[in-house]
Design a protein around this nucleic acid. Structure first.
Lengths: 134, 134
DNA sequence: GTACATTTGTGCGTATGTATG
DNA sequence: TCATACATACGCACAAATGTA
């Protein structure tokens, strides 16, 4: 499969879709490193910025995470801890701010739970938390 | 308040933080349009790409949405519908796929609830849904 | 309906900084 | 020390969508 620059679909989206398919198919497993940005650009005949746009999309979807100086890695495969929510609680979900991300130690592209237990708000990372109603 | 290019904090993050403060302060209300990218670049002495990076961050946090050819608008102000979750349900949150986004009719930067009621999965938009435990 | 200006989207280039190994 | 790799920041050009005259 290759990239078609004449397609109606932007090349960076084509690449993002392509990489996601590879990941879903298990060709790149959890924790595994993707080829470098320069390598991907070379492989698919794109500029590095377009490759970065594709990776940015995957990051924003929480599919990969990138480490400066090292590479881009497939996320997933983590265990989720169960948190019990009690009667009367109200649960919302949204994307965290930068501060909240740092505080919770989560990557970009990961949403958070906002649990309101009678006025007291609690913030929980969405990638490693599941709420059980009981 | 202005942008400091010599700061340890990237200028696009500074601008994102600054705009978020303006929005939180109500200077830009829900539904209101932000200045155009070119205008913001001019106002703060940045390149347009840096402005776009800042807006991308706000988009990824679900704070604004952009419409091609029109502008960037402050999100929020929508009513959230309460959905009751019953005992035994398990709730997760994550970013939706493109297909799910189209199916639910939600913008990018909006996470979804995944409610598991005894094996039956239900997908709920995170921006217009709150879950009440009862 | 048409033409035009405005605004965002895409794609590429360059340069430099920072982190990793 | 050195090469590799990602991050930031600027620039340019053109496409596509919008809104208005």
């Amino acid at each position: 499969m290759t990239i078609d620059p004449t397609s109606y679909e932007p090349v960076y989206r084509q690449l993002a879709r392509l990489l996601k398919e590879r990941i879903d198919a298990g060709e790149y497993g959890p924790g595994e490193r993707l080829p470098s940005e320069g390598r991907l650009a070379q492989m698919y005949g794109l500029g590095r910025n377009s490759v970065r746009d594709a990776l940015k999309e995957l990051k924003s979807q929480g599919i990969i995470r990138t480490v400066t100086g090292s590479g881009s890695y497939v996320r997933g495969g983590q265990e989720a801890t169960m948190v019990e929510v009690t009667r009367g609680a109200v649960i919302a979900t949204r994307m965290p701010t930068e501060e909240e991300r740092r505080a919770l130690g989560i990557d970009s592209g990961v949403p958070v739970f906002v649990v309101d237990r009678g006025g007291k708000l609690e913030l929980l990372p969405g990638d490693t938390t599941k709420l059980s109603v009981g």
